[in-house]
Amino acid sequence: MSAQTANLGVPPAPAAAAESEPPRRRRRNHLPYLLLAPTLLWLVVFFVVPIFTSVSASVQEGSLDQGYALTWRWANFADGWNQYNGQFGRSLLFAFLCTVFCLLMGYPLAYFIAFKGGRWKTLLMALVIVPSFTSFLIRTIAWKTILSDNGVIVHALSSLHILGFTSAIGFTVGNHVLASPAAVVCGMVYNFLPFTVLPLYTSLEKIDPRLHEAGADLYCSPLATWRRVTLPLSMPGVVGGTLLTFIPAVGDYVNAQLLGNPNTIVIGQSIEHEFLQDSTGYPIASALSVILMAATLAIVLVYVKKAGTEDLL
């Protein structure tokens, strides 16, 4: 393992040569930071500075036409929350449902590919990833055509009275699939599934199949082997996969925009709305973004702590 990693561009620790060869220490000490510099610069310019501008904008007042002034108007946060708390709730709910469905669908899929895929493993994984080669937007718009109100699928679901049932429980509206909460969640699951499957597959694939045999030898049922051996070993994949799904899903607005209706508006759309439709809306939009970031961070921290994988963060 260590022989391989040496080629991966990870700089050797500066301490390694320090004691035996003091003169070379200085030169080697700088290398890691030199290699880090582009990334740090990138982070400062495209992450740290925007965060500061965003936080700063969230306590400003004014309009684009008249200019903005930093007045420390904390009420932007209260205003934003009061006006859009429903959208926040909906975003979190949709992201949670999306994550759960992705996990329920992604785990068996990753398990199957990792343990039963055999020589087809690479091909099967490629099949999971290949759809992402087409633009996210185009794939979502394609669903609009596939699930069109006068399309085959909607007619079939309608004739089978499935839509009647889903409408009754509030998942769909009337006799159509598009422009409903169900369509939004399905679109999200479809778009984010590869993000769940990839980390799951990587962690499952690393598990030695002989551990399963050992489990069986020790009189564990297949289910118990999974629960006591496979699942704990695949937890990093589960945590990684759910995080990679949940975090972008909370901020996602494309699915709600294209597949939803005016009653499925999520916080991303509200931010966009404030930002693009209202020339006085920058502070509220920024305040909403800051609240969203803080909420996501809090949820992720609690989740990671509960999931017991401190070594991940």
């Binding site: 990693t5 991966l8 990870v10 980390p199 990587t202 690393k206 990093p236 945590v239």
Partner: peptide, 16 residues
Amino acid sequence: AQLLARAARAGAMRRT
């Protein structure tokens, strides 16, 4: 550290 870097690159998070 190298392991983690590699794992991160592969999109994996490995319990150790």
